[in-house]
Design a protein around this nucleic acid. Structure first.
Length: 567
RNA sequence: UGGGGUGUGGCCAAGUGGUAAGGCGACGGGUUUUGGUCCCGUUAUUCGAGGGUUCGAAUCCUUCCACCCCAGCCA
């Protein structure tokens, strides 16, 4: 039971409609591309995948699967200065973990460098591209502004022969970085700035993680992406809204070259409350040591979320529920939590753990006696059972005792009777305090007749507490996480780091029931009444358990107490 | 009038001329050996605003307003 793999989730329901699905369905119905559907997920390997990428992955792979097509994984690796194999590997790991399979269709834009280069020469021969000797600053100065047209480059009218010669010499490494660039010859007066003779190739004497020193010129995104899509026969090239301005260029390049023309479709990227999802900001969190790395359980990266204890099923469900549209959005974190709870409620085994232990001595329980109970792993589903020992000295949660109970509190307080889950009823008969007045121990009396957690006389107790036998308890580290930011939209702040939550991590020494002794890293369970937890995939091992809290359970009492102005 | 987009309840989001789906959240209530789960109910006379067309408009026309994206040799 404590192995990492829990009961697999049931197959997800049919995906809801959205405008992209509708459009693809229409294309299939009208016989466009002979009814063929091919999508791709095209990450740049310059960072870890985050939950925003999950939306795109689910969309792209979902479309491929739904329409009997296929989805490629293609690394958009056209900027060697920023890309690394570590990222390539993490991306493949994360996509697989999310539950998608690119089978034998693993591609890299760098695989196409020669073909791309050939296309560039073709454009030059058609008089549609030219080599510009201006510096980056000069080009910028002549680009014009959003409201004013740009000026033609003094090198715009070069002959095809000269352009070809210069471009070949660029490729041969004759010029230093930044000396020249290949530009498309479109329209410097275009109201769309993207169309003002965009750069197609730049010189970068930087080794590439896959092609090594083979190239010193690299294609720009706009040139590489559309042609890579075309080469792969992608029918629907789905990307986020900010690329909408680039679509005319995407279309222009493909039209000039007369090659297969995929359809670019844009959708609104995901924004999540209390988190940041821009690569720049995530890199900053890692670089500045705000988190322990890309896979810190507080990070919205897929590796962080996985380590936190989220399941791929929950994430896929989340991606279905948020929908796909073109309006800017900000999805509440509560929806993500809901998806996890819903998934794990049905499949996670239950266990007892006390996070902040308070010692309880059952005064009328025989010294040295041990009851060994057999508790089900799940209250409704048949998941078998485990042995749980009960003895004279126990631990309960500090939060479950109040010397002076607030209104509506039906846990333990002096004179009150509660149920220890599945075990016995106990009544608090005394409180032991230290010199400072802190409650350090409770004296209680149990009712032997209530064994199993019910009583022959049928009397009701309102509270049921989780507990652990002190002598048999396992000690474990439990990491309790909270939101990384204190504001719903950190990106709206002048400096997003100004609202970092100083209490986003609390490390506790908890006591666990002994059945958890050999919980495997990655194992999920519910600690009864506390939340869903997962044995840390990196740091936990039998004998030195480390659990992460993925999400709390819904807490009605906490809400009531908060309203009462309680602590 | 630089160009391109978007505006439906607190948050997502269906709806594409026939009289506002669904989910999350919130709020009530029931069940309950997890104050969990589950169940039941409530939560937009109104679709950014105004004007118009129509028997009928969130859907069509029109004016206006708000917000987002674009001036990397990043993607």
């Amino acid at each position: 039971m404590t192995t990492a793999e829990n009961t697999p989730a049931e197959a997800p329901l049919a995906a809801p409609v959205n405008f992209i699905r509708a459009r693809v369905a229409e294309d299939v119905a009208t016989g466009k591309n002979a009814g063929r559907v091919m999508t791709r997920f095209p990450p740049e390997p310059n960072g870890y995948l985050h939950i925003g990428h999950a939306k795109s992955i689910c969309l792209n792979f979902g479309l491929g699967r739904e329409f009997g097509g296929a989805t490629n994984l293609r690394f958009d690796d056209t900027n060697p200065a920023k890309e690394e194999v570590e990222y390539v590997e993490s991306i493949m790991r994360d996509v697989k973990w999310l539950g998608f399979d690119w089978e034998d269709r693993l591609y890299y834009a760098s695989d196409y460098f020669q073909r791309l280069y050939d296309y560039a020469e073709e454009l030059i021969r058609m008089g549609k591209a030219y080599v510009d000797d201006q510096s980056a600053e000069e080009i910028r100065a002549r680009r014009g502004t959003l409201k004013e047209p740009g000026l033609d480059s003094p090198f715009r009218a070069r002959s095809v022969e000269e352009n070809l010669d210069l471009f070949r010499r660029m490729r041969a490494g004759e010029f230093p970085d930044g000396a020249r660039v290949l530009r498309a010859k479109i329209d410097m007066a275009s109201p769309n700035v993207v169309m003002r003779d965009p750069a197609l190739y730049r010189i970068k004497h930087v080794p590439h993680h896959r092609t090594g020193d083979a190239w010193c010129i690299y294609p720009m995104y706009d040139f590489a992406h559309c042609l890579s899509d075309s080469i792969e026969g992608v029918t629907h090239s789905i990307c986020t809204l900010e690329f909408e301005n680039n679509r005319p260029l995407y279309d222009w390049i493909l039209d000039q070259l007369g090659v297969f023309h995929p359809q670019q479709i844009e959708f609104a990227r995901l924004n999540l409350t209390y988190t940041v999802l821009s690569k720049r900001k995530l890199i900053q969190l890692v670089a500045e040591g705000v988190t322990t790395g890309w896979d810190d359980p507080r990070m919205p990266t897929l590796s962080g979320i996985r380590r936190r204890g989220y399941t791929p099923e929950a994430l896929r469900d989340f991606c279905e529920r948020i929908g796909v549209a073109r309006a800017d959005n900000m999805v509440e974190f509560a929806l993500l939590e809901h998806c996890l709870r819903e998934d794990l409620n049905s499949r996670a085994p239950r266990a007892m753990a006390v996070l902040k232990p308070l010692k309880v001595v059952i005064e009328n329980y025989p010294e040295g006696q041990v009851d060994e109970f057999d508790f089900p792993w799940h209250p409704e589903k048949d998941m078998g059972s485990r042995k749980v020992p009960f003895s004279k000295v126990l631990y309960i949660e500090q939060d479950d005792f109040r010397e002076e109970p607030p209104k509506g509190f039906h846990r333990l307080y002096p004179g009150n009777e509660v149920r220890l889950r599945y075990a016995y009823y106990i009544t608090c008969t005394g409180v032991v305090k230290d010199e400072a007045g802190n409650v350090v121990e409770l004296r209680c009396a149990y009712d032997p007749e209530s064994k199993g957690g019910g009583s022959p006389d049928g009397r009701k107790v309102k509270g049921t507490l989780h507990w652990v036998s002190a002598a048999h308890a396992l000690e474990a580290e439990v990491r309790v996480f909270d939101l990384l930011f204190t504001k719903p939209n950190p990106s709206a702040e002048e400096d997003f780091t100004s609202c970092i939550n100083p209490d986003s991590l609390k490390v506790l020494r908890a006591r666990l029931e002994p059945a958890l002794a050999d919980a495997a890293p990655g194992w999920h369970c519910q600690f009864e009444r506390l939340g869903y937890f997962c044995a840390d995939e990196k740091d936990s091992r039998p004998g030195a358990l480390v659990f992460n809290r993925a999400a709390t359970l819904k807490d009605t009492w906490g809400k009531i107490e908060k309203k009462q102005g309680g602590r």
